[in-house]
Design a protein around this nucleic acid. Structure first.
Length: 428
RNA sequence: GUGAGUGUAGCUCAAGUGGUUAGAGCACUGGAUUGUGGUUCCAGGGGUUGGGGGUUCAAGUCCCCUCACUCACCCCA
């Protein structure tokens, strides 16, 4: 006997669940289109080299990799950004900047499954490429917040936490943390929610070459506005450099916050957000669900060197990824999933075998008119047919009674009002 | 990858310390004299109790293996 379950970490979508997924995708698409982002797609299968080059060799362990029959090393995409970078790079000359694209892509990742993490998921990706100013961040985050609202989530339930890797780097410079330790420290910051302050302190100290007072990093996490950051930074006795650049980063953040004024109740500055991926270079952000156990439902940021890494021209981008698994879990918990039943317009009951020819011609006619039409093929008692029609939320039932058919008429019954009338067949 | 827990019908769950043909609700199918639905009533199908092995006169129940799921760690989308 074959195992009927989907393979580990993969999901079946029966119509009952597919409705919700489709609804979610519709919301995503609608927001994207309203902001005039254009849809794109790429193959599920990419060259292993492309995916490795972007993410580093070790990621290969988490990819579904295989060789095709000609011995090419291939992999299922784990995210969309490498494919996007590839597409942009190969048409670079003919694209007018900025490029604003979106996609909903199924991605695969070979790793342990947990709640909210499968080996396969759909990820909504929205990106702006070729715009260096924080206007790009502003538009992306505005769009993101609008999608959250559209899904029925409130500012109390979700927050977009915004941080700047540039400012964090500047802080580390001011603390005399050597550049080669910036990355490990940031990775540790990413995990700070999972430990106490002293554990965190210990973990960071372990990574550093010598004893450095990292208290300012903690202080930084408490800052909530660009003004506080500015004051905080200039308060540090600067043994280091490039004050004007730091000013620029703070200015950027300040501007972004101002641009996001229409959705400011959803926005929070939080420097403990750094994002796991190594390729982010500037502003980064994450959407957090705040109730119960906090969960990240989307995240993104500025990436400046990604295209160069795959051999393209320097081109800076901002984008985010938003997966379907966690959000569907949350919307289910909060009862935010709409009761989306397909509304059937017509339900044809042939009543007698010999009316089937007529029934099918009516089916053809109505469906061509764009009406959702069900034809009852079971020939049971009328009462049972009507019962089904009601259960399936049908508006009108067309019954082919012999007497009426003989006069080229059918009975059209309004299931909502309960009344019925005779209609000439050619008038349908 | 490590540790813990769970696995009984499509779904939610029952079946004292092992003891007859494993039950219920919902869902599904059919019917209440095929020309009238949403409520109601009646009937029915559906399980090798996740899979395999073992102990026993007897296993859903105890033991081992395996698979899947859940939680924590790890890691990240």
């Amino acid at each position: 006997m074959l195992d009927l379950k989907p393979v580990r970490g993969m999901r079946d979508f029966y119509p009952a669940q597919m409705r919700f997924r489709q609804w979610l995708f519709d919301q995503w698409r609608e927001v994207s289109e309203n902001f005039n982002f254009l849809p794109y797609d790429a193959p599920l299968v990419e060259n292993l080299d492309l995916l490795k080059r972007k993410a580093g060799e070790d990621i290969a362990e988490q990819l579904y990799t295989f060789q095709d029959k000609s011995g090419r090393d291939l992999a299922l995409r784990a995210e969309m950004t490498p494919s996007l970078a590839r597409m942009i790079t190969s048409r670079f000359e003919s694209l007018s900047m900025p490029v604003k694209w979106y996609t909903i892509a199924q991605c695969f990742r070979y790793e342990r499954t947990t709640k909210g993490r499968k080996r396969e998921h759909y990820q909504w990706n929205v990106d702006i490429l070729g715009e260096d100013s924080v206007s790009a961040e502003a538009e992306i985050i505005l769009l993101l917040v609008q999608s959250l609202k559209k899904l029925g989530l409130s500012a109390e339930q979700v927050k977009v936490k915004i941080s700047s890797r540039n400012i964090l780097e500047a802080l580390m410079n001011k603390l005399d943390i050597p550049p080669e330790f910036h990355q490990p420290v940031m990775m540790t910051i990413d995990k700070k929610d999972k430990m106490s302050e002293s554990e965190f302190d210990q973990l960071i100290s372990d990574k550093l070459p010598r004893k450095i007072d990292i208290q300012p990093i903690f202080d930084m996490f408490k800052l909530g506005s660009p003004q506080e950051i500015s004051r905080f930074m200039s308060g540090l006795k600067s043994s280091c450099c490039k004050q004007d650049q730091l000013d620029k980063y703070i200015e950027d953040l300040d501007q972004l916050i101002q641009y996001l004024n229409p959705v400011d109740d959803f926005i929070q500055i939080d420097f403990s957000i750094v994002r796991g991926l190594a390729y982010y270079t500037g502003i980064v952000f994450e959407v957090y669900y705040q109730q119960g156990k906090a969960r990240a439902i989307a995240g993104g940021g500025r990436y400046s060197q990604l295209l160069e890494k795959i051999g393209g021209k320097p081109l800076s981008g901002v984008g985010f990824g938003f997966g379907d698994v966690v959000i569907l879990d949350i919307l289910k918990e909060t009862s935010n999933l709409p009761q989306v039943h397909p509304q059937i317009d017509y339900y044809i009951i042939p009543f007698e075998q010999k009316n089937l020819k007529l029934a099918f011609s009516l089916l053809d006619k109505l469906t061509q008119q764009g009406k959702r039409t069900e034809i009852d093929l079971k020939f049971r008692s009328l009462r049972n047919s009507l019962k089904d029609a009601s259960r399936d939320r049908c508006n009108f039932v067309i019954i082919l009674f012999p007497n009426e058919v003989a006069q080229n008429q059918v009975v059209v019954k309004d299931l909502i009002k309960g009344d019925e009338r005779k209609v000439n067949i050619r008038d349908l």
